[in-house]
Design a protein around this nucleic acid. Structure first.
Length: 755
RNA sequence: GCGCACGUGGCGGAAUCGGUAGACGCACGAGACUUAAAAUCUUGCGCUUUCGGGCGUGCCGGUUCGAGUCCGGCCGUGCGCACCA
């Protein structure tokens, strides 16, 4: 039995040095072997890596090394998602330039990643804040613009009052900015949009083919895109002083048309605005709605309010039947046409509204098991059933009735045109990418009074960020820079104004995986041939928090890049895996402040565990287990673990026990266990090596047969589970093998002979 | 409110197709080695038992020769969406 201990501190740097020197992880594009692209979501250089990174990159590294061992030409690159607000906030707080802050963090974090011994191709490293990257992004933007995928328009947008910038819909979570947590306000602003809605249908249907994506993510994207089939239906207006003769609405329930009892329009609807000009009370009501609409949470909790305009509309299939038109606070101007017809008996909102304003509630669908005299009572009936009180629809199911009435309305004319048109609608909105901040990719456009918004000619790219920006006060440093925005129009040569908005950082991360395929190119963003050789990424690994944001934007980008000739692949990620978080207990000292695990000593077990501050007997309260975060201070620094135990132990523990898609609880005991196993493997290996060199171990003995059987069994099991990314099960198989080896080695030690 | 996922020992979890429930690890108990401790090794470890066995995968019911797994209904936890007409 060997008593020597494995010393990670000397062994790991030695091997890392050899790997670097031999450049064994650098990948050649002209390598003829079958390709395999493994990618983990690249990090934001916030300062130091955290355990979430360790887990993420360990998983990717296992896949990369496994595929390399299987003979694939593996691409496994790393880079930096380097633009973003924290750099700018740091500049405001501590007078460091965002660039300096960012590159310093990159250096630190690169050192940390290197100490993990990952099989990364560092020759392809890129940082999105580097002009050598963002110049190509500006080129993509200009090409998208020419292809009609970019739009500048005025719209109601989400304004984050803390970060002082607008946000995309996807970046507003529960009415708050995804980064700042501030309540988001609605503001009417002229902004840049990428037309992701051009691909709504395709982004939705293609989800069906992403069979190596988690169902959960596909479902989330499906719901986010939110397809509905309905009818655009024009109603004739009863004669009125405004001179308006029709109102168009969108509905997914035309089958309930004979249950209509009112119309409702958004406060911003043109008809509402026109009516408000002649009705001061209505104008006040609309203003009130807009004020309440400034915060999204206010909208969600607000009571349904309406205002009767006095106008009315004529039922499309019964000229003697008119319904009143209300302006209502719950109607959204940017979905459908901003106008609806209300059928209180079969819709909860309409029911609430009708009850409040005393409007009729007419039952037109009854449950299948209900009698003919069924009437909707305290709650609307919204399930499947049988049509009633609806003339030619009676007896049909709502689905059949949808078709029947749609066909009838398509054949009905109003003012010389078909009254109705079948229409598919989506919940997905265009992607708002303008940000009123400095540390981002400048939008390459020049505004000219004569020529409009002119894209910067490709030859003039990149539009570089000025280094001498002023971060002393809030707001956009680019906008108040004395000279940067004053340029001549590239089209007519007259004085013009540079766009001072920068792009959302999610633009930066929407195509980096394509840039990795040929990061050395200078003339174009990509070589389409090389992109097509590597993409789609075979295995992409990252956090579930990007289920919609990054993963949807990247899918859009791949399509837009295909359209503009920068690559031929529509789906960027063939296999997706979303890993769980690294969580840890939280600790609070007597005065209520959080303390880090490193400052705490724990004694006792189970219920009797007691925590005290290290070096004193001050009690510490053990709190809930939560995601490691700076604010809760429940973080364990990967550097400390790697220094103490070595990278192998840290990585082994990360993959042990917890299934990779689930959260893993970081415990000191768990790391100790992993460390013991690393030592055990070293001892067993040393024993076997020692014995095989000093003793003539029979290759045909019973011992060898048993070992061979155990080894092959483990090999098959590990291979099977690695393909399924079931790393925790791989770990278990390797433990089983080690036990078998241990038993055999111990078994023959007694007499030193093979039995 | 709507949608989705998940409930297995003290703990993390395994059981790939409906076929021995609890692999593997952690923690714990006992033993060996040691002056002692650590480390290491051996061994035990779902509950219960009259030692034959009985019970057991959130709860209730169903399908099946057979259910942790499939179906229906509850309860609980987590996540996503939330006036989308």
């Amino acid at each position: 039995m060997s008593t020597e201990r494995y010393n990670a501190r000397t062994a790991e740097p030695k091997w890392r040095g050899i790997w670097d020197e031999k450049r064994i992880f650098e990948t050649r594009n002209d390598d003829p072997r079958e390709r395999y692209y493994v990618l983990e979501m690249f990090p934001y250089p916030s300062g130091r890596i955290h355990m979430g990174h360790v887990r993420n990159y360990t998983m990717g590294d296992v896949v990369a090394r496994y595929k390399r061992a299987k003979g694939f030409n593996v691409l496994h690159p790393m880079g930096w998602d380097a633009f973003g607000l924290p750099a700018e906030n740091a500049a405001m707080a501590s007078k460091v330039h965002p660039k300096e802050w960012t590159y310093k963090n990159i250096e630190t974090m690169k050192g940390q990643l290197k100490s993990m011994g990952l099989s990364l191709d560092w020759s392809r490293e890129l940082a999105t804040c580097d002009p050598s990257y963002y110049r190509h992004q500006q080129r993509l933007f200009v090409d998208f613009m020419k292809a009609g995928l970019v739009e500048r328009r005025s719209a109601k947008v989400n304004w984050d009052p803390v970060d002082q910038t607008v946000l995309a819909n996807e970046q507003v979570i529960d009415g708050r900015g995804w980064r700042s947590g501030a309540l988001v306000e609605q503001r009417e602003l002229t902004q840049w949009f990428l037309k992701i809605t051009s691909f709504s249908e395709d982004l939705l249907t293609s989800l069906d083919h992403l069979d190596r994506w988690p169902d959960k993510v596909r479902l989330m994207q499906k719901n986010w895109i939110g397809r509905s089939e309905g009818l655009m239906l024009r109603w004739a207006m009863a004669p009125n002083a405004l001179g308006v003769d029709e109102l168009e609405i969108y509905t997914t329930r035309p089958d309930t048309l004979f249950g209509a009892s009112f119309m409702a329009i958004a406060p911003d609807h043109p008809l509402a605005r026109a009516a408000a000009e002649k009705d001061a009370k209505l104008a006040a009501f609309c203003d009130e709605c807009r004020r309440m609409g400034t915060s999204v949470t206010a909208v969600e909790t607000a009571e349904k309010l309406g205002y009767d305009t006095g106008l009315s509309a004529v039922h499309p299939l019964d000229p003697t039947w008119t319904v009143p038109i209300y302006v209502a606070n719950f109607i959204l101007m940017d979905y459908g046409t901003g106008a609806i017809f209300g059928c209180p008996a079969h819709d909860q909102r309409d029911f609430d509204f009708a009850t409040k304003y005393g409007l009729p509630i007419k039952t037109v669908v009854r449950p299948r098991d209900a009698g003919a005299d069924y009437m909707v009572g305290d709650t609307p009936f919204i399930d499947d059933g049988v049509m009633v009180n609806s003339l030619f629809l009676d007896g049909l199911s709502p689905d059949e009735a949808f078709d029947a009435i749609a066909t009838r309305l398509e054949q009905t004319t109003l003012h010389g045109k078909a009254a109705a048109l079948r229409k598919v609608n989506f919940r997905l909105r265009d992607w708002l990418i303008s940000r009123q901040r400095y540390w981002g990719c400048p939008i390459p456009v020049i505004h000219c009074e004569a020529c409009g918004s002119v894209p910067v000619p490709p030859a003039d790219l990149p539009v570089l960020l000025p280094d001498d920006a002023d971060f002393s006060k809030p707001g956009n440093p680019l906008d108040r820079h004395p000279s940067w925005k004053h340029v001549d129009c590239p089209s007519c040569g007259k004085p013009a104004r540079r766009e001072t908005d920068t792009m959302d950082t999610f633009v930066d991360s929407s195509w980096y995986f394509a840039r990795f395929t040929d990061p050395w190119r200078t003339d174009t963003p990509t070589d389409p041939k090389v992109v097509d050789q590597w993409l789609p990424v075979d295995q992409y690994i990252g956090g579930i928090e990007h289920a919609i944001l990054h993963l949807l934007y990247s899918r859009f980008f791949a399509r837009a890049m295909k359209l503009t000739g920068h690559g031929g692949v529509e789906e960027p990620f063939r296999g997706l895996f979303t890993q769980g978080m690294v969580v840890h207990e939280t600790y609070r000292s007597a005065d209520g402040t959080y303390v880090t695990p490193a400052e705490v000593t724990i004694t006792g077990e189970g219920e009797a565990r007691i925590a005290t501050l290290k070096g004193s007997n001050q009690p510490v309260e053990i709190g809930s287990i939560e995601k490691m975060s700076k604010s809760k201070r429940n973080v364990v620094d990967p550097d400390d673990i790697i220094d103490t135990y070595g990278a192998d132990t840290a990585r082994w523990f990360m993959l042990s026990d917890s299934p990779p898609e689930r959260d893993v609880i970081w415990t000191e005991a768990g790391v100790e266990g992993a460390s013991r196993f690393v030592q055990r493997v070293y001892r067993l290996t040393a024993d076997i090596v020692a014995r095989s060199s000093t003793q003539a171990v029979s290759h045909y003995g019973e011992e060898a047969t048993l070992l061979r059987r155990a080894a092959h069994k483990a090999l098959a099991a590990v291979e099977n589970d690695i393909e399924r990314l079931a790393f925790n099960r791989c770990v278990a198989h390797i433990y089983t093998l080690a036990n078998a080896v241990g038993r055999t080695v111990e078994g023959v030690k007694g007499d030193g002979a093979v039995p």
